[in-house]
Design a protein around this nucleic acid. Structure first.
Lengths: 218, 218
DNA sequence: TGCCAATAGGACTAAATAGTCCAGGAATGC
DNA sequence: GCATTCCTGGACTATTTAGTCCTATTGGCA
């Protein structure tokens, strides 16, 4: 309930609390439905019903479906970044990365690998269909990677990582492993490949530690 | 023209060459269109037009759109495996992996990262929508990974890889890096992240070489 | 309190799209 | 070469779905 700004409207009209709440309800419903069914397979009537609103409200808050989808891209991006910021902004050690990895794997295992990453699935579905959505998603991925690479920079600055470690490339590799892991887990309906993929990326990062220590990643 | 069996029909009816050719033409058009627009965003009329066929032919060869999509999943899977078999079945050295990586990156760079992997994009779009398609895709991924892990087994047996290398896990990690790389490249419309992701996976494999040798991956 | 814009409800329209049907032409087996 | 089955063309229907419109209600503000 602390994320009202996540759904902040962009227009200049006078706007009431009730209107904001409705808009939020629509986005929340779209988020839920489109995560499991995909964007194109979700109809506006589905969203209308799930959000307990009406057609006119949908079109009052969003010009058309495309604009709703674009708003959803931003909405989801803000949610993911909010969540990830919480988990990554104090990252200072390798074990912190392991905890981060475990949290993601555990969350995904709750639904047996289904649905995957909300951003990744939109990325494949929309990238070749809506340039604006694509670039918005691309920015979100970049911001997400930056959260990781910032942490790796801190680790390098504090002498944990060798100087020849490249935080940006390591972050990109980790993100690819994460997204690829989501994808394979989704296809297999089994979280295992996601764990394997993330472990590979973590091992790679570990190889840049100044003094390799600790157990192999679990 | 050596891939007629790729589109082999499954029914028991008497079937003519002409019928096979039409079916093939439909699948080929569906393949092309759905790669760039996605499955759900491609209509049967699009396919009818692109394949120079008629509605009745579509429904003569496929019960409905879902069955066409399922056939496409198999068709694409067969094409990918055919291509990958050619590139992987003689894999015996680390430099062979590097060549394989370069070929994939180069192919993807031709369209600036767009469209991604035909299997990966279907996986995210269909996995939560059509259980049959999902399991078919999952099998194809497994077969693809096996091509890789078989090669890694050969490398381990010949003493190139250390005994503690786990070919199956390494193959899963490599596949995740590949799919995640495709996804990020598609979102960014830039092939670079795909290269970084594959390099990470290759470095990881290289760390299991008995005597690390050669230049860093390009 | 009363005005006015924002919000809500929901029937309705238009367009897109999946799916059906039938009649005629082409292969194939006997 | 004839009958049977497959194959093709395209008009047609039914359904789904995006998008519109009109009326009623609510809430903020002078």
């Amino acid at each position: 309930m602390s994320d009202e700004q996540v759904a902040a409207p962009t227009n200049r009209r006078r706007i009431s609390q009730r209107g904001i709440a409705t808009r939020e309800r629509i986005l929340e419903a779209a988020n839920r439905l489109m995560l499991v069914r995909g964007v194109n397979a979700t109809t506006l009537d589905d969203i209308r019903e799930a959000s307990q609103t009406s057609k006119s409200q949908l079109y009052h808050h969003f010009a058309d479906k495309q604009e709703l989808v674009r708003a959803l891209v931003k909405y989801r991006g803000a949610l993911v970044l909010q969540r990830e910021r919480a988990g990554l902004e104090r990252l200072r050690s390798f074990s912190g990365l392991v905890r981060w990895r475990n949290a993601l794997v555990q969350a995904n295992s709750l639904n047996n690998g289904k649905y995957g990453c909300g951003l990744g699935s939109m990325a494949l579905e929309l990238s070749d269909q809506d340039e604006q959505a694509r670039s918005s998603l691309s920015e979100t991925f970049a911001a997400w990677e930056k959260l990781i690479s910032d942490g790796l920079h801190r680790m390098r600055d504090s002498g944990l990582l060798r100087q020849d470690a490249d935080p940006e490339k390591l972050a990109t590799g980790l993100m690819a492993a994460l997204q690829g892991g989501y994808l394979l887990a989704n296809a297999a309906h089994d979280v295992a490949p996601m764990g394997v993929a993330l472990d590979m990326a973590l091992e790679h990062i570990r190889s840049f530690l100044v003094q390799p220590s600790g157990e192999p990643t679990p």
